[in-house]
Structure formats: structure tokens, C-alpha cells
Amino acid sequence: MPIRSILAVDDSRLARMMLREAVLKSRPECVFREAGTAEEALNATRQQIPDLFLIDLNMPGMNGIDLAMEISRIAPGVPMALLTANIQDKVKLRAESIGLIFLEKPISSDRLGALLAQLDV
């Protein structure tokens, strides 16, 4: 099933705007929702589960990995990608160990398009 809706979680408005541009450039028909905090993301997920989550690692309060674990209880099996400029092996391993896709920040629309194509099954 193609990815038709995405929830982007990042405390930075700039980062969310850049993500929105990258998503809509590679998939204009996609429904793009955004959350600025972990709490907003959990509420948005309870209201409607998207086809893909894009989650920033470094956020005040709950970090992206902890948020992903919370989300997986509400939306098991939905793909989640962790975005960070901190591409350390241990961070990457920790993310991948709980099933997160690891994406380097800032993400290009080409890289995001490739990810969406990969997830379209």
C-alpha cells in the first residue's frame, strides 16, 4: 500500500517546513500533518494513525527514540523514521534495534522520495 499520510514530529518549525517541502515535492498527494512536541504527536496518532512517522531525535522532554516506543504501542507496525544530524553508530544501532529507519538530517527530497518508494509495497 502506498504511503498516503505522514506525521512529522519536530520541535523546530523550520525543520517541519523543510520536511513538508521535501514530502510534497516527492509526493504532492500525500497528507502531511505535523506535531511540535511528543505530546502533540501522541494525541495526533490517537486521532488518526498515519502511514509513516518522521521523528526528530533531539526534542525537549521526550526524545525521538522514546517517543517512537510510545507510538509503537498505539500504532504497532507503522513504519517510523528517526531524523538526526547525529549519525553516530551507537545512536543508529539503538534506533534500528527498535525498528526505526535512520535518516540523516537535513533530508533531501530525493532521499525522502527513495524512502517512500521503498515503503510502498
Binding site: 523546530s12 518549525r13 531525535l57 533531539n58 538526526t84 544530524a85 547525529n86 549519525i87 553508530d89 538530517k105
Partner: peptide, 22 residues
């Protein structure tokens, strides 16, 4: 919003620095 932008620009740099230092 300008402060948000600066924080994000610098945080991406901080993330890369963490990788290099590690």
C-alpha cells in the same frame, strides 16, 4: 520563528559535531 530557525541550524551542526567527536 527566527530563534527557532537559528536553533535548528545550530542543532544540526551540534549533531554533526557529536558524530565527529564520537
Amino acid at each position: 520563528f527566527e530563534q527557532d530557525m537559528l536553533r535548528e541550524l545550530l542543532n544540526v551542526g551540534i549533531g554533526r559535531a557529536a558524530y565527529s567527536l564520537s
